[in-house]
Design a protein around this nucleic acid. Sequence first.
DNA 1: GCTAGTGATCTGTGATCACAGTTTGAGTGA
DNA 2: TCACTCAAACTGTGATCACAGATCACTAGC
Lengths: 233, 233
Amino acid sequence: MTSTLALAELPQLDRRTLADTAYEALADLLAAGRLAPGDRLSLRQSAAALGVSVMPVREAVSRLVADGVLEVAPTRAIRVPIMTARDFRALAETRMAIEGMAAARTAEHRSKADLAAIRRAEAAFRAEAESAEPDRTRAVRLNRDLHFAIYAACGLAPLQEVIARLWLKAGPVINLDLRAHPERLLQGFALRRHAEALVAIEARDGPAAAAALAADIREAADFILSRGGLRDA
Amino acid sequence: MTSTLALAELPQLDRRTLADTAYEALADLLAAGRLAPGDRLSLRQSAAALGVSVMPVREAVSRLVADGVLEVAPTRAIRVPIMTARDFRALAETRMAIEGMAAARTAEHRSKADLAAIRRAEAAFRAEAESAEPDRTRAVRLNRDLHFAIYAACGLAPLQEVIARLWLKAGPVINLDLRAHPERLLQGFALRRHAEALVAIEARDGPAAAAALAADIREAADFILSRGGLRDA
DNA sequence: GCTAGTGATCTGTGATCACAGTTTGAGTGA
DNA sequence: TCACTCAAACTGTGATCACAGATCACTAGC
């Protein structure tokens, strides 16, 4: 027998299927706002673009449909759901409630290491937002990183997964808007709320952390709704 | 042109794909506890049992895997995830937080019609639980109906979907236990909490409704954990 | 000039086949 | 009686084909 000890240290290489890869590619497209609400998606075209057969794309799309990130129209066409203003408001309210709760738990349970990670993420976002020529794409990613640094510290894995799904669903609307109006993210709205959240988490003040996160989400949602890009309920 | 008025009244016939049907069939199996944690699932056997090719089953399974209700083992075998006691506790805590919140919203926003529906659901469950020879399967379904009557009235569709997913994930563990020990559901634990929730919703007392739901979930989880059927973390 | 119809081309859905990797169990050896 | 071997049967994954229905550009008829 060969050295079991040495072999045990080999990292378990994850066998990614083509479907997994396709899923990530599509999810990225959606999260980045490259696929706008109402856009149609063709299995064959996507497959050709990814250089695979339709099978893996089919599986990826069926997962995204299950998540509500894509939908099959009554005509069987696959498209990005067109959210009404009412839908978007309900999604934002759900996020405020759930993400606020996660932030509160983090504030109460956080370790020093958690706090340090959150501090780093906050600083990274701040640096990008306050730089002379902020990179939009980068800022979006850093904003996401900060939020999930907070949620990751809440200690409840299922809660984190739930939030990730909600973000995926809100992604197209939020980031499409951001592409059109990059000024929002970089004008201090978010910065203030992030700072408040950080202070609350430092002070182990759950309710304050929840309030800061909820305000962050509400302000972004209100901004998008005020722009009137969404269809009425 | 033919009579547009008459045509408008035709019910939009929903085109269910075989994959949809397969998904429901498998989800039912899981929710009913017929598929226990650790059990393997073969695509071809399932397809044969459903009388279709593997394609629709594949799609259904890929959705369930995305939901975390099934998993693909490193050997590529599909099976029901074996939840550790730690996992189960985290899931229960997440449910307590989210479902409690939904119940609180319902208490605050409910209409008279909502309240009537919840009352009916509570009475139906009570009748079954207090009957001389309660039907286990029926009781499980009525319990679920009651919970979702409460969540449906919270006014937030995305929140409801989140909860449905959490139930699907917890289903195998909970209902497997219930199959083995039917006495739990029928010994008044749940009945008391349901009554408390109903009173709180009637009184528009959000916090009390949240507490009642959380207690209901916690007690069921504690009972299962105390039985020691789950693997240690 | 405008509408109804028509056919080519696209769509997603489902079945079937091919393949590489895994599991299993019977057979063989000590 | 036990451990090992090896082949047959199974596993999920991916590609390909078949099909019914939806689109869309275009033309015939009014």
